[in-house]
Design a protein around this nucleic acid. Sequence first.
DNA 1: TTGCAGGGGTCAA
DNA 2: TTGACCCCTGCA
Length: 322
Amino acid sequence: MKFLCFKILVIRFNIELIIFMVRKRNKDMDYRGYTVCEEKNKISIEKIKDIDLNHTFECGQCFRWNKNEDESFTGVVKGRVVNMKFKDNVLIINNSDFEDFKSIWFEYLDLGRDYGDIKQKINKDKVMDEAIKFGHGIRILKQEVKEVLVSFIFSANNRIPRIMKSVEILSDMYGNEIKYDGKIYHSFPDLRSISESELCKMQECKAGFRCKYIIEASKLIEQGIIDMSLLIKMDTDKSRKELMKLPGVGPKVADCILLYSGTKHDVFPTDVWVKRVMEELYFKREATFKEINDFSKEYFGEYAGFAQQYLFYYARENKIGV
DNA sequence: TTGCAGGGGTCAA
DNA sequence: TTGACCCCTGCA
């Protein structure tokens, strides 16, 4: 009998120990309005509003996120590989921890911004209402400047799958190796490595005439002739002009660099898709790039970049104007 | 199988 | 304002 009681006590002690260990392992922490649950090499964030990973990663602003069969996305950001899944209003980031959330993901996913408020401010007509409903889960990522610079020089007269391929080859050639889930990935390379590349080597990226632009632009930045860190302090027009001093960077690419690096949000990158949707849904006629830019500046003001993103995604996915 | 047009832009004449 | 640029895809 005594032995049986002792055994029951031991079992109870073990169960309580397990519960204690599990509780200790799954820590809930708060950061700037979000509750982050940290488990082994994984974090879960609840109650993120206005997010849909399909919208955010497939709206044309980034090129290093790949969708998996289970609807999650695996991507390389700032030298790390993570897997993200948004399900039942919980964002799960595998291969990450609370420190990463504070230092990378909060800013990268623009979680400090109230997108509900922005949507309200730009929802001025039926067109925008439709576009916002369609791409309701878009968040504008704050990506590294070097990555958006190179990616959007690649984007000139190009298509998304090819841009993704070129970025991947470039990273494989010059980035650092990262192992995750049995696979090998590569970080986005430093501009120094790119600037020192031979043109013939760079052409392995299959980016054709854009390769020389990328090498030359990287050289200008590495030599300090263009200082990217000063862009945020300049007004938007001046920062655009500064960027356009780089080879391969025209007005559209400059606006993309400013918007997708989180440097300026009052730009309206106008490519053929945005031009088509603006002509068909707003102007009801052909319009010049200048007309479209002037209109967006006046109409959407400081939120022009967000408006552009909803419109672009809406136009491209619905093939408006084709 | 082959050939050709065209594409989410920029540059230079 | 217009043609060239590099490479890939879709189509006949």
